[in-house]
Nucleic acid binder design. Sequence first.
DNA 1: ACCTGAACACCGTTCAAGT
DNA 2: ACCTGAACACCGTTCAAGT
Lengths: 187, 187
Amino acid sequence: MPRNNRMQDREEKRNLIIDAAQQLFLREGYEATSMTRLANAASIAPNTIYWYFKDKDDVLIAVLDRELAARLADYLKQSFTDMAARLLWVVHQLELVSPLVSTVHARALLAPAIQVWHEQFHRLIEAMLRVELEAAGIAANHLETVMNIWVFTIEGLLTHPLSASQKQQICQTLSLGIPQQTSVRTN
Amino acid sequence: MPRNNRMQDREEKRNLIIDAAQQLFLREGYEATSMTRLANAASIAPNTIYWYFKDKDDVLIAVLDRELAARLADYLKQSFTDMAARLLWVVHQLELVSPLVSTVHARALLAPAIQVWHEQFHRLIEAMLRVELEAAGIAANHLETVMNIWVFTIEGLLTHPLSASQKQQICQTLSLGIPQQTSVRTN
DNA sequence: ACCTGAACACCGTTCAAGT
DNA sequence: ACCTGAACACCGTTCAAGT
């Protein structure tokens, strides 16, 4: 079956480029990694990359998709004592790839394809947060508000260099302070 | 006094370039505004900009400094009913220049000068928040934690497209939920 | 002191030509 | 189908030359 073999070869070579891209994007940054540099790392001519990817952003999306899949698989294997612990784990995972997080935020403003990826990523995270907050007993009429506060917290913890104890205290304060079953008027 | 006149002329022309830069950075974005485009808008040759500014990031810093001074002057004129109102006003002001906010976040990773500006800006905002939170009766041992939560909230509200009522509810929930005089153990 | 035309080094991307 | 050398258009910035 030549079709299958061909396709597999192609997928393998594509993955080698993604490997090199991920290393360079994390180590040197997306902007600092020129297509020439990436091609050298993958031992091919610069324009050969365009046989496997539409453009530079398409390479970034491939790196992101592969990494997201791996982290989601990790996430499902974990078990957490409470909401604060769950959040801190997620923040820590994102910190390990923080240059990619920054790059997505920066490129989302310039490249529509990255913006689409970013929005889809947010919808995923928000959906997962909703499930957990509902299970934790947050009142339905507060679900969106509380979820947004946790999203802000994840992003805040990620972009600000705080000590571990400061991070923990922030999560703790939010866990205690956010209303559970009590009702507050909405306008 | 020729010295004074000369200096004033120079300052005036510099300001014209900053005017053009601010308009273009807000309307088209920083990256999309090439030095050639900026020079055309200011009716000068591209390289003439380098007589007034060190490089492109230096132009950005000039725009930021001038805008920040103007907004701070506005802020001091305002009077607010409570912490939530104060925060929502600040968020609204930042929304008016949101392309600049995004640009600072993106460039801070690549240009040390922008990173320095960003850090100084954060120190300023945090100091102002501390003053207000202390006046609002937040316990001293929670000041840093609560301040960080408000910083996260400002940034979150700024980067996520939420309805006015959602924004208000988030600020309200945080105002009510955050501990005031009660003490919580720290580790 | 101030301004410019021309050039430089670099970038992502394209294209014609090879196998 | 896959790969490449050469070229293209663009970028921020520099430099020698003018006033």
